[in-house]
Design a binder for these strands. Structure first.
Length: 972
RNA sequence: GCCCGUGUGGCGGAACGGCAGACGCUACGGACUUAAAAUCCGUUGUUCAGAAAUGGACGUGUGGGUUCGAUUCCCACCGCGGGCACCA
């Protein structure tokens, strides 16, 4: 070992910390330096410590940060802790340790691990979401949401006081459903979709109605909604936190039940959240995931009148029954994205929970309808999802009138229609919708084709034709292509007053309260009726009360309800109780990137000058797992803060990159069938490992028969790697399955960064993670490969410093750089800078290795090359670079030394090598002067010894010269 | 089922219309060493001919297409990974 990485790494980590080498300058001190805000997704400090996946992203941003500093940027590169959350609380419940204690311990461990990697964070800006000095401002931002509403006309959030003014001035009116309307009609009345709606003036409302009307507008509001309740976790979860009907954390079953909860009106921003994606330099796949989650659909709402019941089919007992009157002007509104298929609507389906089901169900069908609804209510989300193929439903006995053709169509209920989306009712067009088609064939309902495929394209006879085509059997739409037919139908609906254009979203409002202890308390008090009001800003932060018992209560009351003293608030307005729910974990991470710019400010969440200077984040790196949670929520908060004038940019993160998952090491399996005949790799699928208590068993399935196969793990030494695949050494006929899977505790394939750093050093570890492959790609860990980076660093040390550890000098000499080496160096400078900009660290490192390989074996190294190589290595392997830099005779850190520049003139050679092809096949390489003209080159190529045999006796049809690339002769 | 990504030596990967396999690992051979480790040097896609120098053929999941030329662009299919999944 020629150098002691442990000592060197310690030395420079201490140097950086004591000298605050990586402190970002505040805008007033930065002069005209350009800024770069380079951010990592801050971690949840779990008890397990750092995972090798963390340093992947952290090293990537660290390289860019160090590179930018050398380019003269004022770099903000901070780290912090997303420390509220379930694991600390579950640990607290189990072991009776306060979550704050566990959290503190975990943070210390994380900080130690992160610092041992030599990451260039500005530690004076560290934030911790559980610090009252931090969550004071999380609560403050919540109050901004609470005190704001979304103005649909200006398409932005504004303060509730502005809303009050508008209402008092009678510019706005309140609708019966607490909707807001401009006071455009003199009487405050307008007719919308055939229904008379009456809006009222502010002064016409009672005090209680006024309060209700205001509360209904807030961006943070209370609602009684069906929520995802998880019994095991004792809390509700956001839609985003539920995966396949199970909790994302822990994988516990989740049930739907109505509960009174705090909601954030993220749906108001749905359109802007979709549109502004176009401003962002994000991976297209991630933008697509957000678009899908928001799920914007453009279409129309259509009103269907309910037909007066027919005596016979309805089975009414008495002709005096008043049902006919009751249904006289009853109508059901449906939402459709295909208004052009209205003529094909042959029946209608309501969600079982639709409020009109009771009113339209005729007595003779009441029993079956009720039975169906009871059956549905008892099913969990999981059951419902498991049989989406089987579409059941029941007839209500009522008919609706299709407004397009006045035909009577039956009205069904079925749980394939969801109450939570659109209007909870659909018009069914079985000819052009797969679900409707399935339901119609099952229930023997008529199918009416109204769209024909465009000429030359065939449609299947057996299924729905869901593509665009030409309208047929559709009266006024006949002959129109789908797009135009949609438009024409919407205009017709609006003219007739039986429908209108409409846009719907899958996105629901964000369920924002949790029945937990370890989260931010809501800065709210509730009166005896449950009405919420904000506490005064001067009372922030509202800190968590001390508790003995953190267990969830199992009810909508959070554990905070056990803190009796804390709970009760008396002021001059009366007696109140505090809200006992806490905020979800996402709250703190929604704005932490803002706090880094001004982490110690006690007066504001961020100083406006600093915000303007640092925002937006220039580069944000993190895992894809946050594609629809953190990244959607923080964009939403940022937009609210933007609307209210607290931040200056509409989006927080300009460029975002997802680092790929690091998988566990390659595992090898052998499978045997029951008759002990081994099967080959190609025949096994879905390989998984099960621990049944007696040990780990490998389970797989035969690809063709689906038969379950039991396998065993074999070690790498037992395997021979051949071109036909991997086989057992003992029996080369037995093929071995090789694959890698996610790192997990249960698999026992988790790699601990502490051990790697102890064995190879932080520099080699960083280099290895960056050299594994493209940052965004998923790639398997292989400890064996790290040695390559170790060797590279040792070789650099040997080339620049020498073999003698005790010697303090270097091998650099003040001599001219030989031409070939100079060319290589300038080429490296160019390539490494380009690659860092493009986050292609693997190829940048390859380039550095190549340059270093050139130095191997030289008697000494020209100083110019030695210094440039050291500087270029610094972002990747900062400790060894600093140490070599010092030994090259410098007394200060290289952190702000300018990045080497390359001279294009130095990169050119006087001659070049050109490949010569005949019919696209390489036959020779010729060396010609760079400035040779085409004629000379073609002649030289044609006369080449190795080319002539391929052209002799044949006609050269074409002579191709691609400048500076190659020559190709087409012969025949 | 739908959407997105991806497929290159024994392995990680490079090239992304122009010399396929840069760079690293492994393996093999050699040097140093009493020995091992470490280190250094060399070889390493498959295959055929040759004693060797060398040369030929094949080769980027499969099948087509565009092109003088395709790993790269287009079409279809197959495998793998991820996301969404009754959203009308």
């Amino acid at each position: 070992m020629s150098y002691n990485f442990t000592a060197i790494e310690k030395k420079w980590q201490n140097y950086w910390l004591t000298n605050k080498t990586f402190a970002a300058l505040d805008p007033v001190d930065a002069g005209d330096m350009p800024k770069a805000y380079i951010l990592d997704m801050f971690p949840y400090p779990s008890g397990a410590g750092l995972h090798v996946g963390h340093p992947e992203g952290y090293t990537a941003t660290d390289i860019v940060s160090r590179f930018r500093r050398m380019q003269g940027y004022n770099v903000l590169h901070p780290m912090g802790w997303d420390a509220f959350g379930l694991p600390a609380e579950q640990y607290a419940v189990k072991n009776n340790v306060h979550p704050a204690v566990t959290t503190k311990k975990n943070i210390e461990n994380f900080r130690r691990q992160i610092q041992m990697l030599g990451l260039s964070y500005d530690w004076d800006r560290e934030v911790d979401t559980t610090d009252p000095g931090y969550y004071k401002w999380t609560q403050w931002i919540f109050l901004q949401l609470f005190n704001s509403y979304f103005d649909p006309i200006q398409d932005r959030a504004m303060s509730i006081s502005h809303l009050m003014q508008e209402l008092v001035n009678e510019n706005l009116l309140i609708g019966p459903d607490n909707s807001l309307h401009p006071n455009s009609t003199p009487e405050g009345m307008e007719r919308i979709s055939g229904e008379v709606r009456i809006e009222r003036l502010w002064r016409e409302l009672t005090a209680a109605e006024q309060r209700e009307a205001i509360d209904a507008q807030r961006l943070a509001y209370i609602d009684e909604v069906p929520v995802n309740w998880c019994r095991q976790l004792g809390t509700v979860l956001a839609n985003e936190e539920v995966i396949d009907g199970k909790s994302e954390v822990g994988g516990f079953p989740v049930e739907r039940r109505p509960m009174r909860q705090w909601m954030l009106r993220i749906t108001a921003y749905a359109d802007r959240l979709v549109n502004d994606l176009s401003l962002l330099d994000w991976p297209e796949s991630l933008k697509e995931m957000q678009r899908n989650w928001i799920g914007k659909s453009v279409g129309a709402e259509v009103d269907f009148d309910i037909a007066p019941p027919d005596m016979h089919t309805a089975g009414l007992q008495s002709p005096n029954d008043s049902r006919e009157d009751a249904n006289a002007d009853l109508s059901i509104t449906v939402f459709t994205t295909r208004p052009d298929t209205l003529f094909g609507a042959t029946y209608m389906v309501l969600a079982p929970e639709h409020p009109l089901v009771d009113r339209i169900t005729v007595p003779s069908h009441r029993e079956t309808i009720e039975a169906y609804r009871t059956m549905i209510a008892g099913r969990s989300d999981r059951d419902r999802m498991s049989d989406t193929k089987d579409k059941n439903g029941v007839f209500t006995g009522s008919f609706a009138i299709n407004p397009a053709n006045d035909e009577k169509i039956p009205v069904y209920i079925s749980d394939y229609v969801l109450m939570g989306y659109g209007t909870g009712a659909i018009m069914a067009v079985p000819a052009h919708d797969e679900r409707d088609y399935e339901f119609a064939t099952k229930n023997k309902l008529p199918i009416q084709t109204v769209v024909a495929p465009f000429a030359g394209r065939a449609a299947s006879v057996y299924a729905a034709f869901t593509e665009e085509g030409t309208a047929i059997n559709s009266g006024l739409l006949d002959g129109l292509p789908t797009q135009q037919a949609k438009e024409k139908m919407i205009l017709w609906l609006e003219e007739e007053g039986v429908g209108h254009r409409s846009i719907k979203y899958k996105l629901r409002d964000w369920l924002f309260s949790r029945q937990r202890y370890w989260g931010e308390p809501f800065p709210l008090i509730l009166d005896a009726f449950g009405n919420a009001s904000a506490i005064d800003e001067s009372e922030l932060p509202l800190t968590l009360p001390e508790l003995e018992d953190f267990k969830p209560t199992g009810s909508p009351e959070g554990p905070l309800s056990k803190a009796k003293e804390w709970l009760e608030v008396k002021n001059d307005r009366g007696t109140f109780t505090r809200e006992t729910n806490t905020m979800p974990q996402w709250a703190g991470s929604c704005w932490y990137y803002l706090r880094y710019a001004d982490p110690k400010n006690a007066e504001r969440f961020i100083d406006p000058e600093k915000e303007k200077y640092w925002m937006p984040v220039d580069l944000y790196v993190g895992g894809v797992e946050h594609a629809v949670l953190h990244l959607l929520y923080s964009r939403f908060w940022h937009k609210v803060l933007f609307d209210l004038g607290h931040v200056s940019t509409p989006e927080p993160f300009r460029r975002l990159v997802n680092q790929g998952l690091i998988l566990g090491e390659m595992e090898y399996h052998v499978f045997e069938t029951t008759d002990s005949m081994s099967v080959t790799v190609a025949e096994v699928r879905d390989i998984d490992e099960e621990n049944d208590g007696s040990g780990v068993k490998v389970i797989g399935f035969d690809k063709r028969t689906g038969q379950k196969l039991i396998g065993r793990r074999v070690s790498e030494e037992d395997i021979e790697k051949t071109s036909a695949g991997h086989v057992l050494k003992t029996d080369t006929k037995i093929r071995v399955d090789a694959r890698c899977s996610k790192m997990s505790k249960s698999r026992g394939n988790v790699v601990n960064p502490d051990e790697i750093v102890a064995d190879y050093g932080a520099d080699a570890f960083r280099l290895y993670e960056m050299y594994m492959g493209p940052l965004e790609a998923q790639k398997p860990w292989n400890t064996r490969d790290i040695v390559g980076m170790s060797r590279f660093l040792r070789s650099v040390w040997r080339n620049l410093v020498g073999d003698d550890e005790a010697a303090k000098g270097s091998r650099a000499v003040d001599s001219a750089v030989p031409d070939a080496l100079d060319r290589q160096m300038h080429h490296t400078i160019k390539k490494v800078a380009e690659d860092i900009d493009g986050l292609r660290f693997n190829t940048a490192i390859a380039e550095l290795i190549k340059l270093n390989n050139e130095l191997t074996g030289l008697p000494n190294v020209p100083r110019d090359v030695a210094e440039n190589l050291t500087l270029m290595l610094a972002p990747f392997a900062p400790h060894i670079a600093e140490e070599i830099w010092e030994r090259l005779g410098h007394h200060k850190t290289l952190t702000r030394r300018p990045w080497p520049t390359f001279d294009p003139a130095k990169m050119t050679e006087s001659t070049m090598e050109l490949p010569v092809q005949v019919n696209g096949k390489l036959r020779d390489r010729i060396v010609v002067p760079v400035d040779a003209d085409e004629m000379t080159i073609l002649l030289a190529a044609e006369n080449s010894e190795k080319v002539r045999p391929w052209t002799e006796g044949k006609t050269i049809h074409k002579k191709l010269y691609v400048p500076k690339k190659l020559v190709n002769f087409v012969v025949g």
